[in-house]
């Protein structure tokens, strides 16, 4: 009974993952593409849940489907977010390259999984109660994967500093102490 349920949820999540992935690249309207990407990330989260990784699933929804995609939507809505004219010419070399690259990655993933997992794929993995808990993940982050963790934090710091510099640059011509905003502007006198 439980296995049938897991199977059913897996089928739905896997297919919605594929469908939303295709939708991301086939919508002409960038806003809809962003919405489809949210669906894609959410169905990935469901797959993580099936793998007993509740914390990763919640993190996926919170960070990627939540915070990151809000920014995508914010920018597309700000810029208008209307459909582009469909591409008139034939397939370009970029499209050929993209299909080739995608195919290569697919083959690579299958080969790596086949080599690494081998016969173990047909057996159910044995996990204990603490698997995927925040405690366990934190321990792995700060021991085995410390270097990757620290490099990521440095990259994020650089991005934050860069954003501050870009933001400060565009406001450079503002007079110090002067606040422009609602209530301080000069309104034409009513006559």
């Amino acid at each position: 009974m439980a296995n049938v349920l897991v199977w059913a949820v897996w089928v739905v999540a896997a297919f919605s993952c594929l469908a939303s992935g295709i939708a991301v690249v086939s919508f002409a309207n960038p806003f809809f593409s962003a919405l489809a990407l949210i669906g894609n990330l959410a169905s990935l989260a469901v797959l993580y849940l099936l793998l007993s990784a509740e914390f990763v699933a919640a993190g996926q929804v919170l960070v990627y489907a939540g915070a990151v995609m809000v920014m995508f939507l914010f920018v597309t809505a700000y810029l208008g977010g209307r459909a582009d004219a469909p591409w008139a010419g034939g397939p370009t070399w970029q499209q050929f390259g993209a299909v080739l690259a995608a195919g290569a990655i697919l083959v690579e993933v299958i080969v790596v999984i086949g080599l690494k997992a081998g016969g173990r794929l047909s057996h159910e993995a044995k996990i204990d109660a603490g698997f995927g808990s925040p405690h366990r993940i934190g321990r792995v982050f700060l021991t085995d994967h410390l270097l990757a963790f620290e490099i990521t934090s440095v990259v994020l710091l650089v991005a934050a500093v860069g954003a501050v510099i870009l933001g400060a640059h565009s406001r450079g011509d503002r007079v110090p102490g002067h606040v422009s905003g609602p209530g301080r502007g000069t309104w034409p006198e009513e006559t």
Binding site: E54, F55, A58, V61, L62, A65, G66, A67, V70, L73
Partner: peptide, 21 residues
């Protein structure tokens, strides 16, 4: 659920989509 606090925040961040969409 053991990660209920994160779940609440995750639901909250999905809820924003209702407003913006």
């Amino acid at each position: 659920v053991p990660i209920s606090l994160i779940l609440i925040f995750a639901l909250g961040s999905i809820g924003i989509y209702g407003f913006i969409v």
